[in-house]
Simulated assay, not measured.
Amino acid sequence: MSRLKKCAAVAIVLLLFAQRAAAEQLPVVASFSILADLVRVVGGERVSVTALVGPDADAHAFDPTPQDAKRLARARLVVVNGLGFEGWQQRLVQAAAYRGEVVVASSGVRPRGHAHEGEHEGGHDHGHLDPHAWQDPRNVIIYTANIAAALARADPDGATVYRANAARYQQALRELDAWAASRFAAIPVQQRRAVTAHAAFDYLAARYGLRLTALQALSTHSEPGARAMGELVRRLRADGTVPVFAENLHNARLLRQLAGEAGLTIGGKLYSDALSGARGPAPTYLALMRYNVDQLARGMQGK
């Protein structure tokens, strides 16, 4: 056999092996990009993950299509955040006639109530849950355990792999949490203040002792009225100079208006409900958190 034919034969064998491996992967659908990243980390090469709402896309504005229903119908496992984040979930599951397990990744997390509209500080529970629990790395340790357990149920042969991957990732989450706590501890308490686009960071604020004022309430569709805007401007003027952050999913028009009227300047951009693309600063959950913490800390320090 000539060398060329040998190379061709090897290529065919490798292709067939790759196709077989792909066919044997567990098909998983995650509701949005952050969850999809967690599933990929825990599942490794044993899973094939599809995110319904991809990077830089808003899950609040997601409108499922027939193609999304087809993706769900082909899945062996569906992973959602829960806490009311995916208001479209049940409708899509029914449309897809999906009969498999729907894993609520936040199961076991102690939920927080959301703040008043236009305010993002703890202690203002109106009976509605804040779904952004992933903003506290300690909660993602729980997410990871739930995902690993669900993958093991769907694929018992991979249980050992899933547990090992989850354990390694949970250690990385603990290290992330310690680093973030140290980063904010270096900032005087009175300086740990900022303005964000919407109320997506209450878990982070509660974890690290921050005071964050949000322009919008939990949903990216709601906007403060003239009275709320006026009150925000008055408060910000009285409080003095604080850093203002845009978000990857939001039009900065209202932020520019607020900042202009309060005499403030918009600083960096935070990632709240979605990862960035692969070339962006937040292509994974760990990168997202490190980027956000660094942006907030630098802004609070006036850098």
Rank of each mutant, 00 (worst) to 15 (best):
V161S: 07
G277E: 15
A194I: 03
H116G: 14
Q295T: 07
R256E: 11
R290M: 00
D177A: 08
V140K: 08
L258K: 03
A259W: 03
D239K: 11
G87N: 11
S219I: 10
L204M: 13
A23Q: 02
V28H: 05
A282S: 12
V293G: 07
G230S: 01
N292C: 03
L286V: 09
L296R: 06
A57R: 15
A22E: 15
R74V: 00
A172Y: 01
Q190L: 07
N146Y: 07
V49R: 08
Q190I: 04
Q89S: 14
A145R: 15
P243C: 00
R76A: 12
M300V: 05
A97K: 14
D125L: 03
F32K: 06
V53T: 12
P156R: 09
R235G: 15
L288S: 01
N165M: 02
Y203K: 06
W134Y: 11
R112G: 01
Q135L: 14
A18E: 11
G280T: 12
N292S: 03
F85C: 09
D155G: 10
R91L: 07
G230W: 00
V53N: 06
A205I: 05
R193S: 02
V244A: 07
H120V: 00
N248I: 05
P243N: 00
I12T: 10
E175W: 03
T160R: 14
R40T: 07
A181D: 06
